[in-house]
Simulated assay, not measured.
Amino acid sequence: MKKRVTLEKKRERAGLLFVAPSMIIFTVFVFVPLIIAVVFSFLKFDMMFNHIEFQKFDHYIKLVQDKRFWNALFNTLYYTVFSVPLLIGLALGAAVLVKRKGWFSSICKSVFFLPAICSMTVVSIVWSFLVNPDVGMFSYWLTLFGFEPVNVLNSPTLAMPAVILVGVWKNFGFNMVILLAGLNGIDESYYEAAKLDGATSWQQFKRITVPMLMPTLSFTIVNAIIGSFQVFDQVYVMTKGGPLFKTQTLVQLIYSTAFDSFNMGYASAIAVALFLITFVASVLTFKRMTKGEEDLA
């Protein structure tokens, strides 16, 4: 009995040792900054920490009344609602297509994944040139077919869709690889049995692929939602939140408030609000996906 207890303790210690590096990184780079942001949200100070004043809940009261905050929240939700389904849909479709063995599938895997290893800043700069109405390739094609070039990034209605498409193009290859790993983990015997029963390709996808892939789908969807709430790079490079603040997201508003207006306390309050919104959205999505797994089971 003592040997068994000793063995269990050794396993627990080994497990703690393996988990310790991740927990240290999480504590230093996530938990501690979050606590600092919460503390800063109740203070007023500049970049040099001069004239520190306790503001109570003034920043949060201002937050509720701030039209720019609600505009940025709407833009962030707009980005999330349209980018996540498009991103996951394209990633899943590409994963199903490249799952087939062959040289063409291997080439497609490399081509689809290539944008994922590029910097979002570089990708945003390239796409800014491509859609430029004066020197862009897309404008040249439009002119070639008799259409007038459109300044997409300066259009209040087209700027956000352009930002969404760039984000989807950049990230869907990464999600494709994750979903492809999930697809490869499904036993082929399920599909063979379904074929013997006369199931069509759509029925196999609906009754076998989706239920068996649901844990992986849950991860990719939640991860995509978190990433979409944190969108910043392509907005800052391509539009800087314009035109008319139509593409200003919450992270871009935090950056502008902190480093343009030098209001660190209010920027911290916005950051705390963003964390709470992202946390609630992630938990609700995860619970909904888990319920979907139970329903499909």
Rank of each mutant, 00 (worst) to 15 (best):
V98F: 11
V152N: 02
G136S: 07
A159C: 04
I186Q: 08
G182E: 01
F42W: 11
T247I: 08
Q204N: 12
E188N: 11
M137P: 14
Q203F: 03
I107F: 09
N175I: 04
C108K: 13
L213T: 00
T247Y: 02
E192M: 10
L213I: 01
A95H: 09
Q252G: 12
V126A: 08
L276E: 11
I117C: 02
V222C: 09
T285Y: 04
L250M: 10
P115W: 00
T76N: 05
P33E: 02
R207D: 15
H59F: 06
T239N: 03
T278G: 03
V272Y: 09
V163L: 13
F286Y: 15
A193G: 04
M160W: 07
F31G: 12
T257Y: 02
A20S: 09
S119F: 12
I125S: 05
H51S: 10
F29P: 13
P161V: 08
L213S: 01
E53C: 14
L142V: 11
V168E: 00
K101E: 11
Y236I: 10
N154D: 14
L142I: 07
Y191R: 05
L296R: 13
S218E: 03
V39G: 15
L63T: 09
A181N: 07
S22I: 01
T76D: 06
T157H: 15
F145G: 09
I35D: 02
Y190W: 12
M214V: 03
G182Q: 01
V122K: 10
F69T: 00
L284S: 03
A116S: 08
E188V: 10
L63A: 09
A94Y: 02
A258P: 09
Q252V: 14
K56W: 11
L250K: 02
V163D: 02
I221E: 01
K3V: 10
L144C: 15
R11I: 06
L213R: 00
N184I: 06
A258S: 11
N75T: 06
V222R: 08
S139Q: 07
E148N: 07
V166L: 07
L97K: 06
S282V: 03
E53N: 14
D233W: 04
V210R: 03
L142P: 04
K170D: 07
F82Q: 08
V32G: 07
I25M: 08
S139G: 07
I35A: 06
A194V: 13
R4C: 03
L274S: 02
S155G: 09
F262N: 15
I164Q: 04
A181C: 08
F138T: 05
F26K: 09
I164V: 11
R11W: 06
A199K: 03
K2L: 12
L213P: 00
I36G: 10
I254F: 00
K99S: 10
F138Y: 12
S268K: 04
V150P: 04
G167F: 00
V210Q: 00
L97T: 01
F113C: 00
I277C: 14
L97G: 08
V163W: 02
C108L: 15
A181T: 12
K101I: 07
A159K: 03
N154R: 14
